[in-house]
Design a protein around this nucleic acid. Structure first.
Length: 403
DNA sequence: CCTCCACAGGAAGCGCAGGAGT
DNA sequence: ACTCCTGCGCTTCCTGTGGAGG
């Protein structure tokens, strides 16, 4: 038995910090959701008719990331099911819910497949045409005469890739069904999503609408405290850790997921260190680590020319579009690559700005024209490290040569 | 007050890849 | 196997613009 490993294993088996780590994970749905009472009541009221055997209105839920949309929806559905069971409802009225994450299941077939699976209708994984899968699902629902609440999370992904065809059919499915019924709960964080839909789909999908406002720092703190009670041992976190996580996340549009991530990663770092408790220092380290992971991931998946433009920006650090373009052209030539036009590079800079890798500001310098001054917005060495992993860029980066 | 720089950013269109329908 | 359609990256051409210097 290796001493080094035994140390790590022992520490991991009886954690001094975590009592139950999973309550900090993003997909955990707690028994109480502070500061979402209003949304819970509203959604509950909208879906409640299902208990009388009536079809609930379709609902459209909008809110930024980490505002509790998914958690509230799952929470209400779970309670609906429990209540139905408790009063012995299921001998008379029957209903079921199907949760589909459209980012994971982003084709028409996969959405139908997942919905079917969730309500216990077995479909072959492959081999069926989409139309046939749809027909079987409808027949299943009709045969059982159940009301199905279909929850389409991150619904914008489905529409962006496949259009609103399936949504149209689902919203109209109740005309085809004789005994069963379908209600749709659509969830998105894209504010203008609803406008991109066909007018008929739009009106029937948003029979009811629910908006989830961002949390403020105080509310985030409450959320973290209620989770921390379950997640940590007594005295495992230092004074100020929770309010720091809350205020950092509040600055980023009140994102509760971000706040929980910060707290979880900070505690993981503390545990790895063998520290007796989580301190503010660990939170700062967590922030840096999360940011670094994000930058790494984003830069890695950038298209080739965006990478070249980004490299040009890292090399001159701050410059006008013209200066960046010149540098970019030099780099392209060195790599034996045809440069794109300045117009295109201008758009690429805008894209990098939107992702948050650079900061681009339009300024007018009078006699010297109107342009955009762009600066790097993330640690230079992180960017260079990732860029140098691309063999097409590696030779252009000193000291980060590809090994 | 006017000019004119150095671009921003809109509009239209082209070639291509990949998916759907037949 | 074939057409048709759509989205994407890109080009070409274009009009618009805040303010320092004449």
């Amino acid at each position: 038995m290796s001493d080094v490993l035994r140390d790590i294993f022992e520490r991991s088996v009886r954690s001094r910090i975590f009592k139950d780590r999973k309550v900090l994970l993003p997909d955990y749905v707690p028994d109480e959701l502070p500061h979402r009472e209003e949304q819970i009541k509203k959604l509950g009221a909208i879906l409640a008719p299902v208990l009388r055997g009536e079809r609930p209105s379709n609902v459209f839920i909008y809110g930024l990331t980490g505002t509790g949309k998914t958690a509230v929806t799952k929470f209400v559905i779970r309670n609906l099911m429990e209540y139905g069971k408790k009063i012995g409802l299921f001998s008379k009225v029957r209903f079921a819910s199907a949760y589909v994450n459209c980012r994971q299941d982003d084709t028409t077939y996969r959405v139908i497949y997942r919905s079917s699976e969730e309500i216990g209708c077995k479909l072959p994984f492959t081999g069926l045409s989409t139309a046939e899968a749809y027909r079987r699902l409808m027949r299943f629902i009709d045969r059982l005469g159940i009301i199905v609440i279909v929850i389409l999370d991150e619904i914008d992904f489905l529409v962006r890739k496949r259009g609103d065809e399936l949504l149209y059919r689902l919203t109209r499915a109740n005309d085809e069904l004789r005994r069963g019924k379908i209600s749709i709960v659509g969830i998105t964080n894209k504010i203008n999503f609803i406008d991109t839909l066909d007018a008929r789909v739009r009106s029937s999908l948003s029979e009811e609408e629910l908006v989830f406002p961002p949390y403020n720092a105080i509310q985030l703190e409450d959320i973290l405290r209620s989770r921390a009670k379950l997640a940590f041992h007594e005295d495992a976190i230092d004074e100020g850790v929770i309010s720091l996580c809350a205020s950092l996340a509040a600055k980023e549009h009140g994102d509760a997921r971000k706040a929980l991530d910060l707290l979880r990663v900070a505690s993981e770092i503390a545990e790895r260190e063998g520290a007796p408790k989580v301190t503010i220092k660990h939170v700062h380290m967590a922030r840096a680590e999360i940011e670094k992971d994000r930058v790494t991931e984003v830069v890695k998946t950038l298209p080739l020319h965006s990478k070249f433009v980004l490299l040009a920006i890292t090399q001159i650090y701050e410059g006008t579009t013209g200066e960046i373009y010149n540098r970019y052209k030099v780099l392209c030539r060195a790599a034996g690559l045809d440069p794109v036009t300045q117009r295109r590079v201008s758009d690429i800079i805008s894209e990098l700005d939107m992702i948050g890798l650079v900061n681009a500001k339009v300024v007018s310098r009078g006699r010297y024209g109107k342009t955009r001054i762009t600066t790097l917005n993330v640690p230079k060495h992180t960017v260079l490290t990732v860029l140098s992993e691309d063999m097409r860029l590696a030779p252009l980066i000193k000291g980060y040569r590809y090994r």
